[in-house]
Computed example of a mutant assay.
Amino acid sequence: MRKKLRVAAYAICVRDDQLLLARGPAPDGTPEWMLPGGGMEHGEDPYDTVVREVEEETGYRIELTGLLGVDSRRHHFRRGFGRTVDHHGVRLLYEGRVVGGELRNEVGGSTDLAAWQDLSAVPGLTRVGLVDAGLALWRQRPAAGRFTRPEG
């Protein structure tokens, strides 16, 4: 079994009761909404990762105003030739504030659309689970900075 660790950083940017999201393809190709952010490059600080990724995916320059917490998730899946991968994703979630730039879509990247979505509409969107984890951290601000996934 192959073991894979992926460390990534994402931003929760809320203004006027709207959340900044990017849209990209799910593994089956279906479009789904996600938080702007992504994987760290070797040697890169997670702070720099999220600032870079948000600008790449949305066109906005952001200022990080706090570390909300960490979402750690491990799952197994099959890759080509029946090989099993033990994947561990560690995602750092920061609160961010837009300080410049203009909203635009990413060209030639992992997302195809960036948009502000009403917080009340988020539950009805096709989205990755990290959106809910990030919003829970943003709303609850747990002292330990850890999101606990509901059972089931």
Rank of each mutant, 00 (worst) to 15 (best):
M1A: 11
M1C: 04
R2D: 14
K4D: 11
K4I: 12
V7G: 00
V7R: 12
A8G: 15
A8D: 04
A8H: 08
Y10K: 06
A11L: 04
C13G: 04
D16V: 01
Q18W: 00
L19N: 02
R23Q: 15
R23S: 12
G24T: 08
G24S: 05
D28N: 15
D28K: 12
G29N: 06
T30I: 09
E32W: 04
E32D: 03
W33T: 02
M34S: 10
M34E: 08
P36N: 07
G39F: 00
M40Q: 14
M40G: 02
H42M: 13
G43F: 05
G43E: 02
P46W: 10
P46A: 12
P46H: 12
D48M: 00
V50Q: 02
V51M: 09
R52L: 12
E55A: 14
E56N: 14
E57K: 15
T58K: 06
T58A: 06
L64P: 00
T65N: 10
G66C: 02
L67P: 00
V70D: 01
S72L: 13
R73L: 10
R73Y: 09
R74A: 15
H76F: 13
F77V: 10
F81L: 14
R83C: 03
T84A: 12
T84C: 05
V85R: 11
H87Y: 13
H87K: 15
H88Q: 03
G89P: 01
G89T: 05
V90I: 15
V90D: 01
L92T: 13
L93T: 06
Y94K: 06
G96S: 07
R97C: 08
V99R: 13
G101Q: 07
G101Y: 05
G101P: 01
E102P: 00
R104M: 12
N105A: 14
N105P: 01
E106T: 08
E106I: 07
V107E: 09
G108P: 10
G108N: 14
G109A: 11
G109P: 00
G109C: 10
S110P: 02
S110K: 14
T111N: 03
D112G: 14
D112A: 11
D112T: 13
A114L: 05
A115W: 03
W116M: 05
D118V: 02
V122R: 08
P123G: 11
P123D: 07
L125K: 07
T126N: 05
T126D: 09
T126S: 01
R127Q: 15
R127Y: 01
V128M: 09
G129F: 08
G129M: 11
L130C: 03
V131N: 08
D132E: 11
D132F: 02
A133E: 08
A133F: 03
A133C: 11
G134F: 07
L135V: 12
A136K: 11
L137H: 05
L137G: 04
P142A: 11
R146E: 02
R149Y: 13
P150W: 04
